[in-house]
Amino acid sequence: MAKKSDSRAVVGSALSPAMLLKMGVLGKIPPPDKDFRPDGAWANTYRICTCHGYLHENNDNPGFLRISRTGPKGKADFSLSVLQKIVHDDAAVCLSEAEMSCATDRSATLRSWKMSSRFLDHDEKIVGELTDEQDGRVKGGAIRIKTSSGTFDRKTGGPVTSDWDMFEAVQRMEFDVSRPVRFNLLEGLTLNKGEQKLRYRGIYTFKSGDGRQTLHWFTQIGHGVLPYDYYLDRYHRLVLVITGPRSYILDDNAEDIVDTHRKEKLRQYRQKLEKMTGGKRS
């Protein structure tokens, strides 16, 4: 009974590295890599973890986000490749893939991109009628989106940065409280959310295992988002992002963990189907 009661204990205070550790969802943060170069070529895979508000119940890993950076160091534009997989109830999957060209400025301003959004059913077959493919580029204070159905312009009020870009940009930022950056967010390369501000908060220290761990903390606040807290190691590698009940945890095993989650969702779906049909359908 004590265990059950503990599982229903609410989180109580804002998610942080220490809290995620207490909840058992953070695991081990990869050790700092002195060879990591934020403006070089790298690939980071994050496990997307959701919290239902309880310490030890309903904390799931419904997805992962893989971001890869390529392109020259220095002032030239660089490229980001993104793959995000989200597993829904009934084992449906949403896959988002993007290739983005970005400026090497402080907010990794978007230049152009190609993006596809696909949904898979419980059998991992693509649901054709839910597929969307877009090419986009920034033009003045607007973005132009091309799809198979036409070309559409959207006003943005200035240069834009996607949430995926920000995972890159924050790694190139100085650990300097005096230099916040302001930008317009194009969330998921589609939703326009202006007036964002990102600033360095300082050093965040917490107890981890036998010792203390130190991370560098940035916060983003703006229209249409819950605050984003970014945590980086001393070599500027982004290891953790928390926004509201959702966390992105750097984890090389993320894809396997999400696959396990999908299999569990599939099992639940089949069980539900069995119950509904009395076992008459496979």
Partner: peptide
């Protein structure tokens, strides 16, 4: 259209 995750509108 099968979509949705219980308790996680944010995702």
């Amino acid at each position: 259209i099968t979509t949705g995750i219980g308790g996680q509108g944010n995702v």
